[in-house]
Amino acid sequence: MKNDPIRIGINPISWSNDDLPSLGGEIPLSTALTEGKAIGYEGFELGNKFPRDPVELRDLMAGYGLDVVSGWYSGRVAERSAKEEIVAVEKHLRLLAENGCQVMVYGEVAHAIQGEPVPLYKRPRFRTADDWKRYGENITEFAKFTLSHGVRLAYHHHMGAYVESPDDVDQLMAHTGDEVGLLFDSGHTYFGGGDPVAVLDRHIARICHVHCKDVRPGVVRLARNRHWTFLESVLNGAFTVPGDGVIDFAAIIDRLKTHGYRGWLVVEAEQDPTVAPSYRYAKKGYDTLRSLLDREMIGEVA
């Protein structure tokens, strides 16, 4: 498995939610790791229940036979300098680098409303070409620093943040250097108003990490029409695991393999575990991706 160019990991959000700790807050980390390993996942992204000491984290994961895939970093380059961000990231970057991570999930949280009781349409925006230029230069400088430590920045476009829509992603890619990788998130792409396969095709050369989440289109429409917050959208079931919605993961995996993608597919679907039982949905997501990868491999051999 470890020699496969594409590996399947999972985010612990299936068991407990960092943005809304009441979701799965009572589920211990050991349950997530044990169940994830039993399902077949090779690694986990980090969440708030993981240790933050590099050695302690490495020992914990080794005990389960799991790898550390990556970990979310809450960046604020939109409101401070790259130099300030470099100082702020030091401990997190060391945690990832010393645990063999190739990428760092970067989420821009300056002025973001993803955890706030504010409708999504009130998210922050860069209004001018100069805004994008300045932001792109700062992100690129920051990304050069993380890459110098062997960890590529994987920029996570996200609902409620500056970079949400496909147009935002286009602007980000146009104003940043190749040091800035793109984290392609299928669910956020759809919710943000885009066709996931089209966005993937447009930026596939920059994609260095992939979050696989499916969507329930009816809920997404309600979220937009009723001006829900991001967390209201999550609680009402906007997202789900691959194979439980409408996103064409067969096409996504085909495109990634054709382009020679080498990295992780991470199942990451914010849901309430009392409504969407963690093990059942985590297994559905894994089985969907595994069957598609295996089907592609059989096709190549034939």
Rank of each mutant, 00 (worst) to 15 (best):
D19L: 09
D272S: 12
A78I: 05
K213C: 11
R80K: 15
G43C: 10
G193H: 07
P217Y: 09
Y135T: 13
V109H: 07
E179C: 07
V246N: 12
H227V: 01
L46V: 08
W15H: 09
S148D: 10
D185K: 08
L265R: 05
S74T: 04
L60V: 01
M1G: 11
R127S: 15
G75T: 06
R7P: 11
S22H: 04
V210L: 04
D67Y: 09
S70R: 04
P196A: 13
H111V: 03
V199F: 02
P217G: 14
T274M: 12
D170P: 13
H175M: 01
Y135F: 15
G75N: 02
G243E: 09
A251Q: 10
A129E: 15
H227A: 10
S278Q: 06
G75F: 03
A161D: 09
N236Q: 07
V87H: 06
R134T: 15
E35N: 06
K49D: 06
A161V: 06
D244P: 06
R224E: 13
V215C: 08
K122A: 11
G100T: 10
K144F: 00
K213Q: 13
R127D: 15
G40F: 01
E108W: 00
P28N: 02
Y106G: 03
D248S: 03
K37N: 12
V275N: 13
K122M: 14
F126V: 07
S30H: 12
E35Y: 01
E85R: 03
W228C: 00
Y73C: 03
L265A: 06
S16D: 05
G47V: 01
S148G: 14
Y162I: 04
R152N: 13
V89Y: 02
E141F: 00
E85Q: 10
Q102A: 15
G75M: 00
G40Q: 05
P273I: 06
H175N: 13
E108A: 01
I207S: 00
V169Q: 12
T176Q: 02
Y121A: 10
P117C: 11
D254P: 00
F191W: 14
G24A: 09
H211M: 06
E26H: 14
V55F: 07
R224P: 00
V89M: 11
E45G: 07
P166S: 12
R255T: 08
D201G: 00
S148A: 11
D19N: 06
P28T: 02
I204M: 05
E26D: 15
A269D: 04
K144G: 09
